[in-house]
């Protein structure tokens, strides 16, 4: 089973974990991305995430399907937030349930690592003295 969502509303960690729970699964791996208060020693005030939503949902769905192809997993959930987020808030949750833990760990890591490379979502960091679109420039 696959559950994909992009939302402007706060993500619900416990709801996501409950969704992947299953009697057939012996392990759940959860990655929770959180807004950090600094980048390269510079204080971050807040972040803003923008998504090309139709395509981002499609790419997230592909990642989940790839996880099923590569590993013996039972349930995959990928939620991403958009809009303005304060320090400590949660932009992304990946939850994977599998019969055995190795598959859950590997699939979870693959999904977050690949999401950062392929899913059309953009992060803007706001500092005291301006803002920057992350990764835009070399």
């Amino acid at each position: 089973m696959i559950e994909i969502k992009i939302s402007e509303k706060p993500l619900q960690t416990s709801t996501c974990i409950e969704w992947v729970m299953s009697p057939a699964c012996g392990g759940i791996d959860v990655f929770i991305g959180t807004v950090r208060n600094a980048t390269k020693g510079k204080q971050v005030l807040r972040l803003e995430f923008e998504a090309y939503e139709a395509m981002a949902l499609k790419e997230m769905q592909k990642l989940a399907e790839q996880a099923f192809e590569k590993w013996d997993v039972q349930k995959v959930l990928i939620h991403h937030r958009t809009g303005v987020l304060q320090v400590g808030e949660v932009p992304v949750i990946i939850a994977v349930a599998a019969a055995h833990r190795a598959a859950a760990f590997d699939a979870c890591r693959y999904i977050i690592d690949t999401l950062k490379e392929t899913v059309p979502i953009w992060k803007r960091e706001f500092f005291e003295d301006g803002d920057v679109w992350v990764a835009a420039h070399p």
């Binding site: 932009p91 950062k116 392929t118 059309p120 979502i121 992350v134 835009a136």
Partner: peptide, 10 residues
């Protein structure tokens, strides 16, 4: 058609 600058989600 869309232009996709370097992505930075997650």
């Amino acid at each position: 058609i869309a232009i996709i600058p370097p992505v930075s989600g997650g």
